[in-house]
């Protein structure tokens, strides 16, 4: 039931992604640029992540400017989720460890349960995962802002649903964002082969 519903919700964004994939595969095999685009004069303007301001596990405000010029991987999770999040975090940790010597590759995990996942709790969670806040930010923000940015900027699903066993529905997607804030890849964070593809794509993106 849960999966059916998730698949349905994913459908919209998938269609959009497939559409953008078809006409954005350049011959030099650059990664695609996802989302809508329009022309301003002779320039193509791409979809970018909307302005945001969230607070990380060290109580530091994290905004788009902190990500500018960096490649980052984003996801949506909550610490008490027993279904897909532990797998996502296992996989994300793998990406983090493989990119340990790449200071230009960051991670941004948004909690979708900001009332329970307080800053203090996220701080403890990050410490327990053994990750450094200079590279991996766990951020807390108002629910509406987080759900909205998930849906409209990252094309990922995140929302409250009391009828779900854990109280939320969300996709297990990892989004790869480039130095200009554009989406360059979408991966199923619960599937190791898809996450292998993400690791390979990070290397491709860095060499652009």
């Amino acid at each position: 039931m849960r999966f059916l519903r998730m698949m349905k919700l994913r459908g919209y964004s998938s269609a959009l992604l497939v559409a953008s994939l078809i006409y954005s595969c350049a011959p030099e095999e650059k990664l695609p640029i996802y989302g809508e685009r329009h022309l301003v004069g002779a320039d193509t303007v791409y979809h970018t992540i909307a302005p945001f301001q969230f607070v990380n596990q060290d109580s530091v405000v994290i905004a788009n400017a902190d990500m500018n010029g960096k490649i980052y991987v984003a996801d949506f999770f909550f610490t008490t989720c027993r279904t897909i999040c532990p797998i996502m975090k296992t996989q994300m940790l793998r990406v983090y460890q493989t990119t340990e010597d790449m200071p230009d590759v960051l991670f941004l995990s948004h909690t979708i349960d900001p009332e329970y996942d307080t800053i203090a709790l996220l701080h403890d969670y990050a410490r327990r995962l053994g990750v450094d806040s200079r590279r991996w930010n766990f951020v807390n923000g108002p629910k509406d802002s987080v759900y909205k940015i998930a849906q409209t900027s990252y094309f990922a699903t995140a929302m409250e649903d009391k009828s779900e066993p854990d109280g939320f529905i969300h996709s297990g997607a990892f989004l790869l964002i480039d130095r200009l804030g554009r989406i360059r890849g979408k991966y199923d964070g619960t599937k190791a082969p898809d996450v292998d593809r993400l690791i390979a794509d990070i290397a491709r993106l860095r060499s652009e």
Binding site: R82, I84, P86, I87, L93, R127, R128, L129, G130
Partner: peptide, 15 residues
């Protein structure tokens, strides 16, 4: 195994 992992090793100090 989502949390405790298929090999029983857990995940960091989380699980």
């Amino acid at each position: 195994s989502n949390c405790h992992q298929p090999d029983g090793q857990g995940l960091g100090l989380v699980y």
